[in-house]
């Protein structure tokens, strides 16, 4: 199943992804980086298209990681 995955050391915590997510699955952790709630994420890729830093991507996530 595809889910959004954020590379935290590239994330600039601008919050564009969180603002765009139709499922409200993304939040900004203490102004440091974006965190994806895997349970809410539907892997639509809207966040990936909006992310200016290219840190968030939609990838295949194994069931163990869900």
């Amino acid at each position: 199943m595809k889910k959004a995955v954020n590379v935290i050391n590239r994330c600039v915590a601008c919050g564009v992804c969180a603002g765009q997510c139709p499922r409200e699955a993304i939040s900004i952790y203490r102004g440091c980086y974006a965190v994806v709630d895997i349970a809410k994420c539907v892997g639509c890729g809207i966040c990936e298209k909006a992310c200016p830093a290219g840190s968030i991507r939609v990838e295949e996530v194994s069931d163990e990681n869900r």
């Binding site: 564009v16 102004g31 440091c32 909006a50 992310c51 200016p52």
Partner: peptide
Amino acid sequence: KERTWCSFCPMGTMTQGICQ
């Protein structure tokens, strides 16, 4: 991308540094 500025905005860098 639309908000590419945000990825190197000095205020954004500074505030993220403070938050970290």
